[in-house]
Design a protein around this nucleic acid. Structure first.
Lengths: 147, 147
DNA sequence: CCACGCTGGTTGCAACATGCTACCAAATGC
DNA sequence: GCATTTGGTAGCATGTTGCAACCAGCGTGG
């Protein structure tokens, strides 16, 4: 068979993460969920994705424990998709992607959406990779080990 | 036409990032590059990816400025693929994915590869999203603004 | 209470992407 | 100089994506 390769049994955590959310739409759905989208139609309008694709993605995110389908908060008979704790734990991933995108794909002054601290309205601090003792680490300061 | 949707003109930085590295293989290639892989054959053996796919992905990563093709460091006539500064800036993204994967896809005690501080050999500190003044921020503490 | 629009899908089809295998040329190793 | 390794390309079968059409429940104005 010629099925897309899966990584869900890899010993590398990055691979398993990619297996769960590493397609074109899932990360953007999660981004929209962080941004407050809950309903099927909200995601569909915001992303411009075909409805069959959105259906499939929402299902796989629910199956993967990233989203959860709950009764609509407005009392209607429809359902809503909200982030589980596991889904909320993706926050640093989204923030890292956002900061990388801001710095590498936008000309200075080019308009773009920006994540800000709700209380102060200010930009966030750049994410830093830190050692156990608090030293900033560059890629070269780290190495991969099996455990 | 039915081409895969592109996000390279979106005003959202997350979307542009996904456009550049958001397919099944690119992030794993970047992970391997952080881990020291440089040669075509190294990536191929490590990932088990078909060679035509690897060729295409390496080319698109080079075109996107994430990797760079340089003469081999061992003096041979072959070429190597190394991370550009833009590629190295993906470090927090990879670390975030790794930490999320470690916590959500592995049973306690299940073996997995781990990123450690080269100097102390210890695990890294968990990534934190911080406000400008250093407060830890949860998803609910932030909001998206246009600029 | 009923007709009409909205919401949240499903189905079918055509085009594109992926995976596999075979093949191949240049560089290396012996 | 000959075999092997390296770094690819080409062709085919299958899977996945995108689009448009369709459809069943819900909700709401009258």
């Amino acid at each position: 068979m010629v099925t897309r390769t899966r990584f869900d049994d890899s010993e590398c955590p990055v691979a398993r993460s990619v297996d769960a959310i590493g397609d074109w739409w899932s990360l953007l759905i999660v981004r929209d969920a962080f941004d407050g989208s809950r309903r099927f139609g909200e995601f569909q309008r915001s992303l411009g994705v075909a409805k069959n694709i959105l259906t499939a993605r929402l299902r796989s995110l629910v199956a993967g424990g990233v989203l959860e389908s709950v009764p609509a908060s407005d009392g209607s008979a429809y359902r809503e998709y909200v982030l589980t704790p596991k889904g909320k734990a993706l926050f640093p991933v989204i923030v890292a992607l956002r900061q990388w995108g801001e710095r590498n794909f936008f000309a200075p002054g080019e308009p773009h959406s920006q994540l800000v601290d709700r209380r102060q309205g200010e930009r966030l601090r750049a994410l830093e990779v830190l050692a156990a003792d608090g030293r900033r680490l560059d890629p070269d300061d780290t190495t991969v080990r099996k455990v």
